[in-house]
Write a protein that binds this DNA or RNA. Sequence first.
DNA 1: ACCCAGGGTCATA
DNA 2: TATGACCATGGG
Length: 225
Amino acid sequence: MKLNRRSLLTVFDSLLTAYGRQYWWPGETPFEIMVGAVLTQNTAWTNVEKAIANLVAHDKLSPQAIITARKDHLANWLRPSGYFNVKAERLKNFCRWYVEAGGFDALSKLDIATLRDALLSVNGVGPETADDMLLYAFDRPVFVIDAYTRRLFSRLGFIAGDEAYDDIRLALEDKLGAEVGLYNEFHALIVVHAKTVCRVRPRCDDCMLRENCPEGRGMQQCLAP
DNA sequence: ACCCAGGGTCATA
DNA sequence: TATGACCATGGG
C-alpha cells in the first residue's frame, strides 16, 4: 500500500463505519480543550478527566485562575494526570502566553502558520499539542500526528514510521486537502479505535495500534468482526 | 509484576 | 541531528 488520497479515505471510511462520528474534542470550551491537550501528553485520558474535574471543583479552569494559583496547589489538582509538576509549569506557561496574546478572540485572527509558530513558542507545547489546539480549539485544518497515527499508517505500509513529525503531517495534508471536518473525525477515530477495539473485539486483543502488536497486521483483520 | 498511556524538554555526543 | 534520561499517575 502507498500513501495516497484513496487509500487514506478507505481507511477513514472503515473507521467511520466501525465507530460512527465522534464529535471531538471532549471539552466544553476552547480553553478547556487546550488545557486537556497539555494534560493528555503521554497520559491516558481517564486520568486527564480527573485532573480537569479537580480544576473545576476548585473553580480554576480559567487562564487567570491558573496563572495566579500557587504552583504546588496547581500540581496537586493535576496529580491524577501524571507528570504533575511538569504539567503545572506547562499550564502556567501556556496561560501566561494566552493572556498576553489577548486570549482566544485575538489568537483566532492569526493565520494558521503564525498561530502554530506562536503555540510552539510556549515551553511545554510541542507539535502534537499545538496541532490538537489548532484543530479542535481553533477549528483549523491541521492533521494531528500522534503515536497511534504513526503506527496505523506505518503498519498499513503508507509510511516508514520514523519520519519527522511535519514530514508526515504535510504529506497527509497534501494528499487530503485542507478539510477541517475530515481531520477532526479522522484523528478522533484513530484514537477511539486504539482505545476500544482491543476490548470490544476478542480477536483483536493484539490491536495493531498497540506497541506490541505483531507487524503486518492490516485494517481488515483488525476491524473484522 | 509488568506494560502502556491522545509528548516534550533538556543534556550530551 | 540524534539518542537517552526524565517526568508520574492509574488501569489492564
